[in-house]
Simulated assay, not measured.
Amino acid sequence: MPALPLVHRPLPYETALQARVHEAIDLVVIHCTELPDLATAREYGERVLYPDSGTGNSGHFYIDRDGRIEQWVPLARTAHHTRGYNPRSVGIELVNTGRYPDWLAAGHQAMDEPYTDAQLERLDALLGHLCGVLPALRLIAGHEDLDTTEVEASDDPTRRVRRKRDPGPLFPWDAVLAKTSLRRWQGD
């Protein structure tokens, strides 16, 4: 397999993230950034949200619309991308507007930006790479599969919306699963 073109852009707090061994990783979680571009995602990723550890929310890999892959957190560190699943998983973020900027508004739950062919081709390559370097990797899930929490809508307190909907209805699960040995999360 040819080398996967990765741009390494470690987050400022990467060494403060919990260390882990590759054998502990059995799950990939697919996300969309729900932000307008990679630069905005980087701004969010660099924010320190957990003062005790000096870390914030982030994925391991970010795939821009043109297929460029950036690695912000090494696999040997636990990124904060999915509550309850971080120590065992790799977070992959696809740049996509999702519900931006009104994530929790009941009147704005459509996720209508399609993923680009370049993103999906690089995602396939990245999944193949990860399967080759992570001996226990067997599962893949969407963030929406793992975080099913509902919260009060920001525009209507009488309605509830899903806290997380990514990667969303336009993510081509069948096509992605056809090209990987990973199996879709079923609550394992």
Rank of each mutant, 00 (worst) to 15 (best):
V28P: 03
A79W: 02
Q119M: 02
R138D: 11
N86C: 09
P5A: 10
Q18N: 09
R42Y: 10
R65M: 01
H143Y: 09
T158A: 12
R159C: 13
E93S: 13
R20N: 08
T97S: 14
E144V: 07
A24D: 13
R162E: 06
V28Q: 04
A118R: 05
G107Y: 07
E150R: 14
C131D: 10
P135G: 02
P101R: 05
D66E: 06
L38F: 10
P114W: 06
E34V: 01
L17A: 06
D66R: 01
A105F: 11
A79K: 03
G142W: 00
E46T: 04
D26Y: 02
Y100S: 12
V90M: 07
P167I: 02
L94N: 01
S53P: 11
L177I: 02
P169W: 05
R159M: 13
L177A: 03
W72Q: 12
R163H: 14
L75W: 06
G59W: 07
D147G: 01
I30E: 03
P101H: 06
R20S: 04
Y13P: 00
T40Q: 13
Y100R: 11
K179A: 15
A39G: 02
D166L: 10
I25S: 06
K179H: 15
P5Y: 07
A16Q: 15
R184D: 09
D174Y: 11
L104R: 13
A39N: 08
D166E: 15
G142I: 03
A136Y: 04
E34H: 03
R20A: 09
P2Y: 12
H8G: 09
T55I: 09
S154V: 05
C131W: 04
R184P: 00
S53D: 15
I63C: 03
E93K: 10
P135E: 03
L130T: 00
V95F: 06
D66I: 01
I30C: 06
E144H: 12
L177D: 05
F171R: 07
W72H: 13
D155F: 00
V161D: 03
T55A: 00
R99W: 04
L94W: 03
P12E: 10
D64F: 03
L35P: 00
E23L: 07
L146Y: 06
V95K: 04
P169K: 07
Y50G: 10
S181A: 15
R99S: 02
Y62H: 06
L120R: 01
E43Q: 13
